[in-house]
C-alpha cells in the first residue's frame, strides 16, 4: 500500500511541472494541425496555442489558428506563438508582424504569414504584395 502512495505522490509531483509557457518543437512528419488535422508540412506558416494547463495545440497555417479560435476562444493566460516566415523561429504573437498576401500558397490557403519585424517582412519575397493584418482579428477568430 505504501508503494501505491509513493507512486501517486510521484504522479502528483510530475504533473505539477510548470513555468512560463515555452513553444514546443514541431515534428514535421508526425505533428498534426489541431484544426484541419493535416500533418504540419512546414514550420514557416505554423503557429501554436499554449493554454495554461492544457496540451499545446499546433497549427499548420495562421488561418487554422484563426478558425480554431473562432469556435473555441483562447482561455485566459494563453500564449500564442507564430513562426517567422523567413527563419521558422518562434515569435510571440504580440511581438510579431502579420501580413496577408493574396494568392500566397500557405498550407490551407489563408495567405497569412508572420515575421519578427517589419524589416524581416520587407526582406521576405513571399510577403511582396501583401497588406498588414490586424492581430486582434486573428485572436478573436475574425469576429469584430
Amino acid at each position: 500500500m505504501r508503494s501505491i502512495g509513493m507512486a501517486l505522490l510521484t504522479l502528483a509531483v510530475a504533473s505539477c511541472a510548470g513555468g512560463p509557457p515555452q513553444p514546443v518543437a514541431i515534428d514535421l512528419v508526425n505533428d498534426v494541425c489541431a484544426h484541419c488535422r493535416m500533418v504540419i508540412s512546414t514550420q514557416k506558416t505554423a503557429a501554436q496555442l499554449l493554454a495554461p494547463g492544457e496540451e499545446p495545440k499546433l497549427f499548420d497555417d495562421l488561418g487554422c489558428l484563426r478558425s480554431f479560435l473562432e469556435t473555441a476562444p483562447a482561455p485566459e493566460g494563453s500564449a500564442v506563438f507564430v513562426a517567422d516566415h523567413l527563419t521558422g523561429d518562434w515569435v510571440r504573437l504580440e511581438d510579431a508582424v502579420i501580413t496577408e498576401v493574396p494568392g500566397l500558397q500557405t498550407p490551407m490557403g489563408s495567405g497569412l504569414v508572420a515575421h519578427r519585424t517589419t524589416a524581416d517582412r520587407d526582406r521576405d519575397p513571399a510577403s511582396r504584395g501583401g497588406r498588414p493584418f490586424d492581430k486582434a482579428i486573428l485572436l478573436s477568430g475574425g469576429r469584430p
Binding site: 507512486a7 510521484t10 504522479l11 510530475a14 504533473s15 511541472a17 495554461p52 494547463g53 492544457e54
Partner: peptide
Amino acid sequence: GVASMLRSGAASRVLMTAALVN
C-alpha cells in the same frame, strides 16, 4: 480516474508518468 478530472496538460503528464511507474 485522476486524469479524467484534470486539465489536458496535467492529465497527460499523469498518464504518461503512470505508464512508466507501474
